[in-house]
């Protein structure tokens, strides 16, 4: 599903060059739940931008669903994002003063889907993240943090993308709400969604079934977490 081959990314500012990624290679299969972990400056944000088709690598190839997208134009990348990737951000990025339903519908507006069909899909996605119907017409800024993040996840799910890309999704939430959000990801993963979680906290990465650790732009560890994650209490309680 995802294959990165010798990916490098170099930022130039003036004469100084920063190598954010150095020869990174890995594969992610369909249905995996992968955490990419690293301290700030490790290159995890750069990697997320490339995986999320927001940016292209300076060198190397990135295959998404078998096609090389490492040299596409801006608008072609937008098309890839629209069809294949669902983003979940640390700060939710919901449209303020806009209803929950309209926020979730937003990606489908760019797909030029008709109104009735897209609202149906939005309702389904919202039910999928356990948000009650009463909230559908609330304005996004009237919700709690956890609710907002669930709306954001519903928005990421609504166009049925191949990958959910979550960038520090619990960073702005308390640990209890964070747990609920992470549990939502585990549920989605069980339903077959590929999930990539970017974080700097080991405790959050532990929820994933595979942990890729980045340091100074290189992968220093690629760890199968399957056995261990079964021990996480929240899963045992389920």
């Amino acid at each position: 599903m995802i294959e990165c081959k010798n990916i490098s990314k170099t930022y130039k500012s003036g004469a100084a060059e920063t190598k954010a990624l150095k020869n990174v290679s890995f594969k992610i299969k369909e249905g995996e739940f992968v955490a990419i972990i690293g301290q700030s400056g490790s290159g995890k944000s750069t990697l997320m931008n490339i995986i999320g088709a927001l940016d292209v690598p300076s060198n190397g190839s990135y295959f998404l669903d078998g096609s090389d997208i490492s040299s596409l134009s801006e608008d072609e990348l937008a098309d890839i994002r629209k069809k294949k990737i669902g983003f979940v951000f640390q700060s939710f990025n919901l449209l303020k003063r806009t209803s929950v339903l309209r926020n979730v519908v937003l990606p489908l507006i760019y797909e030029e889907m008709d109104k009735k069909k897209r609202e149906e899909l939005a309702r389904k996605a919202l039910r999928g993240v356990d948000l009650s119907e009463d909230h559908f017409f609330h304005l996004s800024n009237q919700l709690s943090g956890g609710q907002m993040q669930r709306v954001a996840i519903a928005r990421a799910l609504v166009n049925d993308p191949a990958i959910i890309l979550a960038d520090e999704p619990t960073g702005n939430l308390d640990s209890k709400t964070g747990d609920i959000i992470l549990k939502t990801f585990i549920d989605l993963n069980k339903k077959g969604k590929t999930i990539i979680l970017i974080t700097h906290e080991q405790s959050i990465a532990e929820y994933a079934s595979r942990i890729i650790t980045l340091k100074d732009g290189e992968i220093i560890e690629d760890f199968d977490n399957n056995e261990k994650s079964k021990l996480i209490p929240i899963l045992k309680n389920k």
């Binding site: 937008a78 994002r81 990606p107 760019y110 797909e111």
Partner: peptide
């Protein structure tokens, strides 16, 4: 955000 959702 709109761009990340696929707006051209």
């Amino acid at each position: 955000l709109r761009k990340s959702l696929g707006a051209k």
